[in-house]
Write a protein that binds this DNA or RNA. Structure first.
Lengths: 348, 348
DNA sequence: TTGTACGCGTTATCAA
DNA sequence: TTGATAACGCGTACAA
C-alpha cells in the first residue's frame, strides 16, 4: 500500500524544493526544461494528483455543492439530483447530499454540518416540518455568512434567495381545463393540507379553472389529505377516503390529484367500485414519475421536468458562487420552469 | 454579510493567542476558568464552528464517504443511498455522490476526482460498461493507495474488497419454486444478457429450480434482453419480444423476470393478449420497488432490501476506515443479504 | 533558474 | 496559565 504522493515527497526524492516541483508541474517558464521534464516524469510515474482538501483550504473554495432534500427515494427528487449532478460535474463541482427526512432538526443539523467549510453553496427543498413551523433562521444565517442558497420546488416568499419552481398554479389549471374540455362536469380534487406551498398552489389552480369556466366549486368534491402520516397508514386512509368521496358523489366524472400516488389511488378505487377509467372517470395527476407511465391505464400527468429544475438550480448556484461579489445590492431571481401536460390513457 | 469566524479572529478580538482560544473551547484544564468563560461566550455569540476543511487537512481524514452508482433515478439505488446516508450520518460522516451513468470513463473520472483527498472511502456498484470491459484497474489503484472500497450488488470476484450482495441465485430459485408449487408447468424467464453478474445468477437460479423439480428447461422459454439500449427503445423491443414469446408458446403459465420492468411488461403484454394474471399466467419479478407495489395486479417480487444493503455497506466501510491498520494480511468479507419473496396479486 | 517564506484554519507539543 | 511553533499539502510573491 503506497500512500498518495505529495509535492513534498517528490521534492525530497528529486532533491529540489517543493515550490520548484509545484511550478514544474504547472509548466512554469521559471523552471528549466530539464527540471520540468524530470519532475513531470516522476510525478506521472507515481501518479501525483494535488490534494483537494489542501486546495480547498488554500483557496477557501471547495468546488463542492451541497444538496439538501427531504427524501431521496422519490422519483422527483432523484431526478433533480441527477440534473444537479450533471451540471455540477460539467462545471467542475462535486455534489454532497444531505437528507432531512422531512424533519426540521435534521435539516438544520445537516446544513450546519455542511456549512462549516465543506461546501460552497446549497441547493435545497424544504422539509414539510420546516414549512409547518415556518422557522427559517438556519437559511438566513447560512446566507448571512456569505453562503449562497438556491431553493427549488418547495419555497416560501419570506426567504430572499434564488429559486427554481414550476408553475404549480398554471400546471394545475391546465390539467383541470383539460378535464373540462373533455366534458367532465363534476371534477374532484385530491390534495394535501395547505401548508405545503405546492399543494396550495395546485389547489388554487383547480379553483381558478373551475371559476373561469363558471363551475361552482363544491366543498364535497375536495379531499384534503394530511400527508404527515406514516406512509402505509396514509395510503390506507387515502383509499378509504377516496372511496367515501366516490360513493357519496356518484356524479364525479373527473379527478385531479396533486401527486402521482393520489391519482393512482383514485384509479384503484374507481376500479374497485366498478368504474372505468377513462370512460366513467378521467384522472390527471401531478409529477410525471415512473408510476404514471407504467400504471394501467397509464396516467395523464402534469410533468414538472425535475431534471431540468436540478440543472437550472445548479447553474444558478454556481453562477452565484463564481461571480465576484460587487457590494451592490444583491439580486435574486426566481426561475419558473413550465409544466407540460403528458396525455396518456387516463383521459380521453 | 459576516464571514465565518475563525480562531484567529477570536484570538485577536480577545487579545489572547490562537492556541489559548483553541484550548479554551475544548475546556482544557490548562486554561483558567475565567478565560474559558470569556472565550466560550464570545465564540457562542459569533456562532463559532471549526472549519471542516482545516480539520480534514490536519487529521488527514475527511469524515466523508463517496458513493458511486450507475444511476440515481432508480428505486433500488436511491434506497441504497438512503441506507448509506442513514448509517453514515449516525456515525458522523457525510456522503458525496458520483454518478457513472453506466459509463466506464465517467466512473473512472468520478473516482479519481474523489480519491484525491475528498473522501475516506468508497461504496460503489459497477457500471455496465465496466462489467463488459472487465477493466478494474481504477478499483485496484484506489485500494493500493489505502482507500477502502465496499462494493454492492454488481460485483465481480476478481476484485478483492468487502462486498454486500443479495443471494441472487437463491432469490431467483425461490421465486421459480413458488411458481412450480403454484402448479405452473411452463415457466418463461425474462432476463438480461449474461455480462451483468446479477442477471446471470438469477438465470442460474431459475435453471436450478427447474432442474430440482425435473423440469427440462426449454431455450424457447428464455428471453435474454440487451439492456444497453436506450430506455425507450429497450421498452418497445422488450414488449415486442415478450409478445412474440407468448404467442409462440401458448402453454406458458408462469413468468419469472429478473427485474421489475420486465415483469410489468410481461403483465402488460399478457393483458393485451387477453390473458389473465394470475389466472392464466402467474408473474414474479425481482427488485421490490414502487412499481411492483402499485401495479395492477400488484406484483409478487423478490425483495432485495436495498436500504439494508446500503446500511451494511456503510457500516463495513466505516469499520474499515476506522480500524487501525495492523500490517497483517487484510481480510475481506462478503455479506449476503437474504431476499424475501413478497407475495402479491400476480401469483395465486 | 531555484529556493524561502507565508498563509489557508486547526490542533498538539513544548517552552515560557 | 498562556503562548509560540510546527505540521497537514498546496500555491505564490518575493528573495537569492
Amino acid at each position: 500500500m503506497k500512500r498518495k504522493i505529495t509535492l513534498k515527497q517528490i521534492a525530497r526524492e528529486l532533491d529540489v524544493s517543493i515550490s520548484t516541483v509545484s511550478k514544474a508541474l504547472k509548466n512554469s517558464k521559471e523552471i528549466s526544461a530539464d527540471t520540468i521534464q524530470k519532475v513531470q516524469a516522476f510525478a506521472k510515474l507515481y501518479n501525483y494528483r494535488p490534494n483537494n482538501i489542501a486546495l480547498s483550504l488554500k483557496n477557501r473554495k471547495t468546488n463542492t455543492i451541497g444538496i439538501i432534500i427531504p427524501e431521496i427515494v422519490h422519483h422527483f427528487f432523484s431526478k433533480v439530483i441527477r440534473g444537479v449532478e450533471l451540471v455540477a460535474n460539467k462545471r467542475g463541482y462535486n455534489v454532497i447530499i444531505g437528507l432531512s427526512n422531512e424533519s426540521f432538526s435534521k435539516e438544520v443539523i445537516n446544513m450546519e454540518m455542511l456549512a462549516n467549510g465543506s461546501i460552497d453553496g446549497f441547493i435545497l427543498s424544504m422539509s414539510k416540518e420546516t414549512l409547518q413551523q415556518q422557522d427559517y433562521h438556519h437559511f438566513n444565517e447560512t446566507m448571512s455568512q456569505g453562503m449562497p442558497i438556491v431553493m427549488f420546488d418547495r419555497v416560501v416568499s419570506d426567504i430572499k434567495c434564488d429559486k427554481v419552481i414550476v408553475d404549480d398554479f398554471k400546471g394545475a389549471k391546465n390539467a383541470v381545463e383539460k378535464l373540462i374540455a373533455n366534458k367532465c362536469k363534476s371534477i374532484a380534487l385530491i390534495t394535501t393540507k395547505d401548508y405545503v406551498s405546492v399543494g396550495k398552489l395546485r389547489t388554487q389552480g383547480y379553483l381558478e379553472a373551475l371559476h373561469e369556466n363558471r363551475i361552482t366549486p363544491e366543498a364535497d368534491l375536495i379531499l384534503k389529505m394530511d400527508d404527515t402520516l406514516d406512509y402505509e397508514v396514509h395510503l390506507e386512509t387515502l383509499e378509504a377516503e377516496i372511496e367515501q368521496l366516490f360513493k357519496s358523489n356518484k356524479k364525479i366524472d373527473g379527478v385531479f390529484a396533486v401527486n402521482e400516488l393520489y391519482a393512482l389511488s383514485a384509479m384503484k378505487v374507481a376500479r374497485k367500485l366498478g368504474l372505468s377509467v377513462p370512460n366513467d372517470i378521467q384522472v390527471i395527476g401531478f409529477t410525471d414519475g415512473v408510476l404514471s407511465k407504467h400504471a394501467t391505464p397509464s396516467l395523464t400527468t402534469v410533468s414538472q421536468h425535475a431534471q431540468q429544475m436540478g440543472e437550472k438550480a445548479a447553474d444558478l448556484l454556481i453562477d452565484k458562487i463564481e461571480t465576484e461579489f460587487d457590494t451592490e445590492e444583491e439580486q435574486f431571481q426566481t426561475v419558473v420552469i413550465p409544466t407540460d401536460l403528458v396525455e396518456r390513457e387516463s383521459t380521453k
